[in-house]
Design a protein around this nucleic acid. Structure first.
Length: 737
DNA sequence: AGCACGCCGACT
DNA sequence: GTCGGCGTGCTC
């Protein structure tokens, strides 16, 4: 009976494809998880073998044989495949594509996973005086021969290349039979040096840290999810390090995930300083070869520690022992195109399948994770104190209603800035918008400079004398006259980092102001330079966007000013409040380290806003409670589940028409709990010349929601007829744009 | 997603 | 007369 290979082909198709085994290959010897190359229509594709079946539902004549089996052994284990199958089902994303994304790019394209080999030069033939005689007249060959005797296992090419005329001498020695070339497997874990001469000693733990470590250690060897909830500076990293040390000592591998590439170097330095074990770093900023090396090092168990961003959550591990995911509230853990998975949720599911603990850390936990704690699914580990005994920052609201503002800054804020500068301490001002001003308006007629291909205003970038669209990349020279009436009195409207920077330079001419946003740090190394200046005290005032909020510590900052909190509280996005609160706490955490207490001033026109008040008076936990109550009342996540359909097209009415068809279909379904909201235009209804709309499905019952999504996906081919749009479906969306 | 096939306008 | 526009359908 001929066997049939069921293969997940790298294509956006939801089913598996049946193939015959390649000629001369015994299907019984094949294991699920190996990569194969298959004929696919007119092309060849890479796929992954998932099942070996006795028969196909298709006409056997239609089955083609697999062209090649690429791996002698599967690169993905049964656990890895189970995780990807789950993710593919949960996010309703084609299994072949999901699997492809689990591989390092080169492996995804079919490159061999065999260890790289290097050619080493080994000693051979007669030793002693006979050999000496043969090289008597060549000092370079004699020198190389001496070196070879010191390295009987072989000279690696690096040493050979460092030798003057090494290549020639080597060839000569081989010719004389005194040496020979040998192919040797290269150490894959080149990313890990594996040498720490004097490991940094563990820091002393405060009682909270000690308790957290103890609780997780008790759970090693089984599944358990923890929420490590501790304010900035409370020493979460030390907890991760202690746990990692324990897992490594037991021969396990540790996966540590962070939301952004820029956060990897600091963490890498701390892990390397503490542990001699080989460490692999994996994120999309690495070269293809480096990613392949890190991936294989982890897969083979040659690396013990993995440090990566969300794309690393699927990496295979030989001996998984612990998963840590830092800054779990961060929206960057959600992939926002293609395979829209949440690395946080996948990490928890992975730990569950692998029966290991997972630790989610944050100073400002997401409402989802707090909800999971309340439901008993996660165990909360609280770190109440700042390590080193630093005092928490003091929050104050500045009521700016009716006040005269100078470029958005109140006199009270300006006076506190002055006092702080007088004490030779640093000030940090947070403005969540780059550029000079978000709008250029004509004073005579009200015309506003707009992007030609987006429903958005052009942002003024005075420094570079340009107008830019922050949505599509369009830019043009700054105009001098109104395009509508020709008047030359054009005025900036609103605030950006550039404008605040200029205002401060004018008001405090002695102070050195540094602006930190995507524009000022575009050049490689410029962020590093700016941070150096700040730490060395060559900067008095820091003005910046959320770039300032993540990962960096500014011990000399004692005053933090948040120029405009109102904007963040009044968005159409129901998550805006949560995000703003997290941002405020993250920015606040930059102030007042060690001996100097910090204060945080928030300018607002709504000093009575309930979310703001709860945040200031009761801290983040109090805020989260108020916010959760609002969500519960509205059935919003985490109290309800959502799937967001997006559609876009160059033609204005197509997206809404397509989504209306979906909505109608959804309305006819037997799903009483399902709410169908929309279609509505996207918040940015036109972007880069494309019209966009969205449809939200919501239900308090996850099962019912997913059933509806599945049925809709099946109906898509009919609904799409004559209505060409580009669409995507997002399970558990975090951004609605 | 690609890539084929297939049926209607402006060009050497 | 063709080159090519993108609408539609398929990939084991």
């Amino acid at each position: 009976m001929p066997k049939v290979l069921r293969i997940a082909v790298q294509a956006p198709l939801r089913s598996l494809f049946d193939y015959l085994p390649p000629a001369g290959v015994d299907p019984a010897a094949l294991r699920p998880g190996v990569r194969v190359q298959v004929p696919f229509g007119p092309r060849r594709r890479i796929g992954v073998l998932l099942e070996i079946a006795d028969a196909s539902e298709l006409d056997p004549a239609r089955l083609k044989p697999v062209l090649a089996v690429l791996d002698p052994e599967p690169l993905l284990s049964a656990d890895d495949l189970a995780l990807l199958a789950w993710a593919s089902r949960y996010y309703h994303y084609p299994i072949g594509e999901a699997l492809a994304l689990a591989f390092a790019p080169l492996l995804r394209e079919g490159q061999s996973a065999a260890p790289e080999t290097v050619r080493v030069l080994c000693p051979a033939g007669p030793g002693g005086a006979g050999a000496e005689a043969l090289v008597k007249r060549s000092p370079r060959q004699a020198e190389l021969l001496r070196l070879l005797r010191e390295h009987p296992a072989g000279l690696p090419p690096a040493i050979l290349a460092g030798l003057d005329g090494g290549k020639h001498a080597a060839t000569a020695l081989v010719g004389k039979g005194l040496a020979l070339w040998r192919e040797q497997a290269a150490q894959v874990a080149a990313a890990g040096t594996g040498t720490v001469h004097s490991p940094a000693p563990p820091l002393a733990l405060n009682p909270g840290q000690a308790a957290a470590v103890a609780r997780v250690l008790e759970a090693l060897g089984g599944f358990r999810a923890f929420l490590l909830d501790g304010v900035t500076g409370s020493g979460k990293t030390e907890v991760y390090l202690r746990l990692a040390g324990e897992v490594l000592a037991r021969g396990g591998q540790v996966m540590v995930l962070v939301p952004e590439i820029s956060l990897t170097p600091q963490l890498e330095a701390r892990f390397r300083a503490r542990f001699p074990d080989p460490l692999a770093v994996y994120h999309s900023g690495l070269a293809a070869g480096e990613r392949r090396r890190a991936w294989l090092a982890m897969q083979r168990g040659e690396a013990a520690i993995l440090l990566g961003t969300r794309s690393a959550v699927f990496m295979p591990m030989r001996a998984p022992g612990l998963i840590v995911l830092d800054e779990e509230h961060d929206a960057s853990f959600k992939q926002h195109d293609g395979f829209r998975f949440s690395a946080r949720d996948v990490a928890v599911m992975r730990a569950h399948l692998l029966k290991i603990p997972v630790v989610l850390g944050s100073a400002t936990p997401s409402l989802e994770s707090l909800h999971n704690v309340r439901q008993g699914r996660y165990q909360r580990l609280h770190l109440p104190e700042r390590a080193g005994g630093a005092a928490p920052p003091l929050f104050r609201l500045l009521d700016i209603r009716g006040q005269r503002l100078v470029e958005g800054l109140s006199s009270q804020l300006l006076s506190e800035i002055g006092q702080t500068l007088g004490r030779r301490e640093q000030v940090l001002l947070f403005v969540n918008r780059r550029g000079f001003a978000p709008t250029l308006i004509c004073h005579a007629c009200g015309w506003v400079a707009q992007c030609g291909c987006c429903d958005a205003n052009l942002v003024i970038h005075f420094g570079e004398d340009r107008l830019r669209c922050h949505h599509c990349g369009h830019e043009q020279a700054l105009v001098r006259a109104c395009a509508q009436c020709g008047d030359s009195e054009l005025r900036p409207l609103g605030l950006g980092t550039e404008r605040i920077e200029a205002a401060l330079e004018e008001r405090f001419p002695e102070a050195r102001v540094a602006r930190i946003d995507r524009d000022s740090t575009r050049r490689k190394g410029s962020l590093h330079q700016l941070l150096d200046d700040i730490h060395a005290g060559r900067v008095d005032i820091l003005v910046g966007t959320q770039m300032l909020a993540k990962g960096h510590h500014f011990p000399k900052v004692t005053l933090v000013g948040i120029v405009d909190v109102d904007g963040g509280l009044h968005s159409t996005d129901y998550r805006a409040g949560e995000r703003t609160a997290q941002l405020i706490m993250q920015v606040a955490g930059r102030a007042g380290r060690e001996d100097r207490p910090g204060s945080v001033l928030l300018q607002t026109r709504q000093p009575g806003h309930p979310l703001l008040c709860s945040l200031i008076r009761e801290d983040y936990a109090g805020f989260a409670e108020v916010c959760a109550a609002e969500r519960a009342a509205a059935g919003l996540p985490p109290f309800g589940y959502q799937a967001l359909w997006r559609a876009e097209s160059a033609e204005a009415d197509r997206p809404a028409r397509f989504l209306a068809g979906l909505a109608e279909f959804a309305g006819r379904m037997q799903a009483p709990s399902l709410q169908v909201l929309g279609p509505v235009p996207a918040p940015l209804a036109r972007r880069a010349g494309r019209h966009r709309a969205q449809l939200l499905l919501q239900s308090p019952r996850r099962g019912e929601l997913h059933g509806a999504v599945e049925a809709l996906l099946d109906a898509i081919p009919e609904l799409l007829a004559g209505c060409r749009v580009q669409w995507s479906m997002d399970i558990d969306p975090v951004d609605v744009y």
